[in-house]
């Protein structure tokens, strides 16, 4: 939805740089996958009980979207249209498995905490959405930038929600006490499910307020 279709896939240097810059801005802010397109909500809610989990999940998504966009874009002319969905899923699953194995091997505690949500990146609509909407029609370089940018947009929202929930829920950040119990009584509800929904709802509202002036400028 962001950039125009690439004719044949040839990419002049200037045009390519412009397209990359647009992909970066769209992915991280103007078309933020979580706030505007409302994609990838499940994991955005589930893993944000602590900031550390949110950051790892963000990294996982940056890696998966970037790499799968690159590979899908490289293969886009060799993929028959009829089986493109299966091909996309297989490619995405490969990178998700790589990340999952990496976590299991080097950070087993984190892998246990994230539980099934790493595997669920396969059905995370952001990855599939970018593959379908961008990587299938664009050359490899803008595609990888688009993938990374969307991953970063997702990671940024997760980090914000993670900070709010961990701070208000436990008074800590990344495990260090920021608000001691004498000053602030941790609100358990923030760590539990209802807190996740309410915080994300508020985050979407704040984003709408932040984006409102930009939209008016575009209209004028």
């Amino acid at each position: 939805m962001a950039a125009s279709m690439a004719p044949g896939g040839a990419c002049a240097a200037g045009q390519c740089a412009g397209r990359c810059a647009k992909a970066l801005k769209d992915g991280t802010f103007t078309e933020n996958p979580v706030c505007v397109q409302i994609l990838g909500i499940c994991s955005a809610l589930a893993v944000t009980t602590r900031l550390a989990n949110a950051l790892v999940m963000g990294a996982a998504l940056i890696f998966t979207t970037g790499m799968s966009n690159l590979l899908i874009s490289l293969l886009r002319n060799a993929t028959p249209r009829r089986i493109r969905m299966i091909a996309e899923v297989a490619i995405i699953a490969t990178f998700v498995i790589m990340f999952d194995q990496f976590l299991k091997a080097f950070y087993p505690a984190m892998s246990k905490q994230l539980g099934p949500y790493v595997g669920l990146i396969i059905t995370n609509c952001i990855v599939m959405g970018r593959a379908e909407a961008y990587a299938m029609q664009n050359p490899p370089l803008p595609s990888i930038v688009d993938g990374l940018a969307n991953g970063m947009g997702y990671a940024a929202v997760l980090a914000v929600i993670g900070v709010v929930r961990e701070l208000l829920g436990t008074g800590k950040l990344l495990g260090f006490t920021v608000l001691p119990p004498t000053v602030y009584t941790p609100n358990q509800a923030m760590v539990l499910a209802p807190g996740a929904f309410v915080v994300l709802g508020c985050a979407l509202a704040v984003y709408a307020v932040l984006k409102a002036p930009a939209r008016q400028e575009a209209k004028a």
Partner: peptide, 18 residues
């Protein structure tokens, strides 16, 4: 106004979860 659309659905879901 800022809550129009998905934001209010999220907040309601939060109450439902509670």
């Amino acid at each position: 106004k800022p809550f129009e659309g998905v934001a209010i659905i999220m907040a309601i879901t939060g109450v439902m979860a509670a």
